[in-house]
Design a protein around this nucleic acid. Sequence first.
RNA 1: GGGGUUGUAGUUCAGUCGGUUAGAACGCCGGCCUGUCACGCCGGAGGCCGCGGGUUCGAGUCCCGUCAACCCCGCCA
Length: 598
Amino acid sequence: MSSIALRTHHCGDLRAEHVGQTVILQGWVHSVRDRGGVMFLVLRDRGGTTQITLDERIDAEVWAVARQARLEYVLEVEGTVHARGPGAINAKMATGEIEVLPSRIALLNRTKPLPFAIGGAATEATEEVRLKHRYLDLRRPQLQRNFVLRHKLYQATRRCLDGHGFLEVETPILNRSTPEGARDYLVPSRVHPGHWYALPQSPQIFKQLLMVSGFDRYFQVCKCFRDEDLRADRQPEFTQIDMEISFATNELVREVGSSLIRDVWREVLGHEVGEIPVLTYHEAMDRFGRDAPDMRFGLEHTTVDWSASDFVPIQRAVEAGGIVKAMVIPGGAGDTSRKKLDGYTKFVKRYRLGGLLWGKAQAEGGMSGPLGKVDAGLRAQIPGVSEGDLVLVAAGPAKHVHAGLGRLREHIARERDIIPAGTFAFVWVVNFPAFEYDEDGERWVAMHHPFTKPVDEHLHLLETPERLGEVLSDAYDIVCNGSEIGGGSIRIHDDKEQSRVFSALGLTEAEARNKFGFLLDALQYGAPPHGGIAMGLDRWAMLLAGTENIRDVIAFPKTTSASDLMAEAPNTVDSQQLAELFVANVVPEPAEEGTDSA
RNA sequence: GGGGUUGUAGUUCAGUCGGUUAGAACGCCGGCCUGUCACGCCGGAGGCCGCGGGUUCGAGUCCCGUCAACCCCGCCA
């Protein structure tokens, strides 16, 4: 082992133009090809790879060091850049025209046998193994590429928002628990026995207060925490690009958001994002069955009025207040087997839809399958059906029909491979319902959050509980490829209006004061009209990196049960620590910690 | 909270109908090879078959439980 020199280049830098130069490279051994009299080491760093060639031109001492090299050893190589012979050029390698003949090789560090392969074409290890040795997983070029993209995303964001006059301001991580919304992560207070902080689910209230403070335009790249069950695109801690604008209209916020998207996609991928279409929530649900529609393909839905149908499954659904929607799969009659249709039925049952009615369109409006039993006149309500098409119909409660058919639309699109690769279909979804009925809690709850401004023309409905479901809000989501990647709203800036909304949500004056008193106070001191949006930075990174897995864009992610397999968090703590915090553990200590799982 | 998939060498996997000594590839260790780039060739080491019970003469294989990872529903203002 020896002291280190300063490198002259990264491993991906060298080209034919560098031939003849003396260079110093430092990195990891990516591959070893020992041919006896000649040996090739490929050295890798963040920038790429370079072949180090050793043959009779090499000093015996250098040769002896090189012979010790193993995969992932850390080397420092000083040598001369040589052009490869005509037959030895590797077109698949960025630096494939050259090789470095070393005059000195220093072995900076060795490695234990690796838990999984980092270079080469070996199959990928399971995520469990990779997460346990995340520092090695991150060494893989595939993941390094994702973090380069993520870095560019941060930088483009700051450049863009700074350019639009936004101030970057940090808000507290240790915060007050707000009972609405997701479950909080709690932190006990040592100084205030029995009192707890909550980690922020978002900086929502603070950013509104910054508007009251006159900051005018605020943004922050911030961590948010929600203690809910996880998914492929959800982590317990995640990053938002949080923004708020004073004197904002819905259109202005969307304009700034669109501008940010355009800048980021251009700077990170060189991709030009065109005009972003706008759908209302109702339109999105009606045509796609989802408030985050994937606009990369068709298979749109049609709501039909089949209340006159005497077909029992339809009748029953309609009588129970349900709706009937249809989806046409062009040319789907021929290649959709009975087994596949059964699979679709099973698929939609996950979304609590009772089942599916199908029919294969024949000549002259005829139809085989269960839909053949529906009156031809009613079937004619479904537009664009031609011979050879598959028609799928769902009937039931609107929520379940939308969800089942909406997810089935995406499932079938993937299955039939009709989603164009490498495209980004952005869409704004606006005018969400302000409130939704919580069946379990038997009460109305805010769909976005309780500070969202209802549209002016619906304010008069706030005092009419049976019509709360009709109230639309000045809220908007930004969606890309069927994924919600941001959302926000115009906020209520008038304390009277805020009180009316709290009251509509069944909160008494006292309860509202207890939960959100400082916001209500602030609204009485000259709060400007304001609104904003929070962008899901991790999901943006997923889209930019082309991955379906949020763990691929988070350096040290957690598993679906919110543990860190490398750090082994969460862990138990000393009873002394708990005592200081006035916290008692009510979970019985296991006889032996972690007896299971090697 | 519920449903599904998976768990065998360091890694990725195979393992038939329940049968005697659990295999392969890559990696690791040793040797050979002067233009490789998924280098090649020869040899070697390496296994609590996730864990615990049960059935059986006999369990990697069948049954029950449990743990973990992943995907989904609920949940995620």
